[in-house]
């Protein structure tokens, strides 16, 4: 199974060039049963990344383009009256797929955003008093334009917390860009991609990630990080207990990808920018810079 994971990462790196760390974080996020927020300008490959992952994991894939006039019903679906049968029938929305790419989520109104976020959190949809479970696994990759663009509704602070990780893709390196330009179109490559991991295998991996050992020394370190974030004047708000749980789950998945059975401080440090960056309300987008004081000052020893 470890080999399958390696194959998967290798294949993804073939499609998305020069973005190994981001791909790894995205996979890690999936293994930790979290949702992913990608924040970047259009065109850097957000869609490609999500599509590639869906392919490799063999998940049903649906892209939802968020616009300013999208309604909650456009996302979750609505009840339609069938005049012949004299019955209401539920027409499921696009969200009833295993992997959702919620593109440009900050273009939609808060109402539409929260419809998505509620579904993400509860992994089910409630329409007209009836509850419809979402498929398993359920994984949302949302993309967001940088907040300073006009005509956007940035996700409220309380809601970005629903995403386990936020990553930035950034422009490709010169060499990667050259390969991109000279190679085949990406969508062709994606269509050719084999399924690297069966859904059952994914479930097993997620379970294995849960069982990665966490020593009390590591929990001390985690608590020190949380305490530091709450004390430090560098941050507008400290990390919530939910953030702590997310950090732990992500670090476990990271250790699993690294083929280890125990979490090391380095795992925690590796996932920290992605997990904590968007929760500290600093305003800046560079997650690595945001969490730098934590990495520098919280003692591991």
């Amino acid at each position: 199974m470890d080999l399958a994971l390696d194959r998967l990462l290798a294949a993804a790196n073939q499609v998305i060039l020069g973005k190994q760390p981001q791909i790894r974080l995205a996979v890690c996020c999936l293994l930790a049963r979290g949702h992913l927020l990608i924040e970047d300008i259009p065109g850097v490959g957000k869609t490609t990344l999500s599509h590639t992952l869906a392919r490799l994991f063999g998940l049903e894939y649906q892209r939802i383009q968020f616009t300013s006039d999208i309604l909650p019903a456009d996302i979750v679906g609505s009840s339609v009256f069938d005049a012949h049968q004299q019955l209401f029938s539920f027409h499921p929305g696009p969200i009833f797929k295993q992997m959702i790419l919620a593109d440009e989520i900050n273009r939609a109104t808060p109402k539409a955003q929260s419809a998505l976020l509620e579904a993400m959190e509860e992994r089910q949809v409630t329409v007209e008093g009836r509850t419809y479970p979402l498929p398993q696994p359920f994984f949302v990759i949302a993309t967001q334009n940088p907040a300073h663009q006009i005509g956007t509704f940035p996700l409220p602070e309380s809601q970005v917390d629903r995403f386990l990780m936020r990553i930035e893709l950034g422009y490709p390196s010169r060499q990667a860009e050259r390969e991109l330009l000279s190679g085949q179109p990406r969508h062709v490559l994606i269509d050719e991609l084999p399924v690297a991991l069966l859904p059952a295998q994914l479930a097993d991996l997620q379970q294995a990630a849960d069982q990665v050992y966490v020593s009390s020394a590591l929990l001390d370190y985690l608590q020190a990080i949380l305490a530091f974030s709450r004390q430090s004047t560098d941050f507008a708000s400290g990390l919530s207990p939910r953030a702590g749980l997310g950090l732990l789950a992500a670090a476990k998945a990271w250790a699993l990808i690294d083929k280890r059975q125990a979490v090391l401080p380095e795992d925690m440090q590796a996932v920290l920018p992605a997990v904590a960056g968007h929760r500290l309300n600093v305003g800046a987008n560079d997650s690595a810079a945001i969490v730098a004081p934590i990495l520098k000052h919280v003692p591991v020893l």
Binding site: L71, S79, F81
Partner: peptide
Amino acid sequence: IRQIHWKAFA
């Protein structure tokens, strides 16, 4: 179609 007031129609 999703703006139709199905309940009234029913």
